[in-house]
C-alpha cells in the first residue's frame, strides 16, 4: 500500500475507506503477537518438544517477544504520516 496522501474532496470517500483499511492492517498486525503471548498457555502449554533446550512454553514466549518488534514495525508502515 502506498503512503496516504490527502486527496481533494472528490476522492474523499475513497480516502476515508483507505484510511480505515490501513487502520485495520495496523491493528491486525499488532494483535498477532499480543494474542500469541496472551493465550500462550492455551496454544503451547507443553514441556516437550524442547526448542534449543528450552521447554516449549518458554520457547514460545521468547519467540513471540522477539517477533513483537517485527510485527509492530510492520504495523507502523501503515501509519498515516502527519
Amino acid at each position: 500500500m502506498e503512503e496516504g496522501r490527502c486527496e481533494p474532496s472528490a476522492a474523499g470517500a475513497r480516502g476515508a475507506s483507505r484510511r480505515a483499511m490501513k487502520l485495520m492492517a495496523r491493528c491486525g498486525l499488532a494483535a498477532v503477537p499480543a494474542l500469541m503471548l496472551l493465550f500462550a498457555p492455551l496454544l503451547a502449554n507443553r514441556d516437550e518438544p524442547r526448542i534449543a533446550g528450552l521447554p516449549l512454553l518458554l520457547a514460545w514466549c521468547i519467540l513471540w517477544v522477539v517477533l513483537t518488534p517485527a510485527f509492530l514495525y510492520g504495523a507502523d508502515r501503515f501509519r498515516e504520516k502527519t
Partner: peptide, 20 residues
C-alpha cells in the same frame, strides 16, 4: 515454576498497547 513466564509475556503486550 511456569507461572513465572507471565513476567516475560506481559511486557510486549504492554508495548503494543502503548504503541497505539
Amino acid at each position: 515454576g511456569a507461572p513465572a513466564f507471565y513476567i516475560i509475556a506481559y511486557g510486549p503486550i504492554a508495548y503494543i498497547i502503548g504503541y497505539f
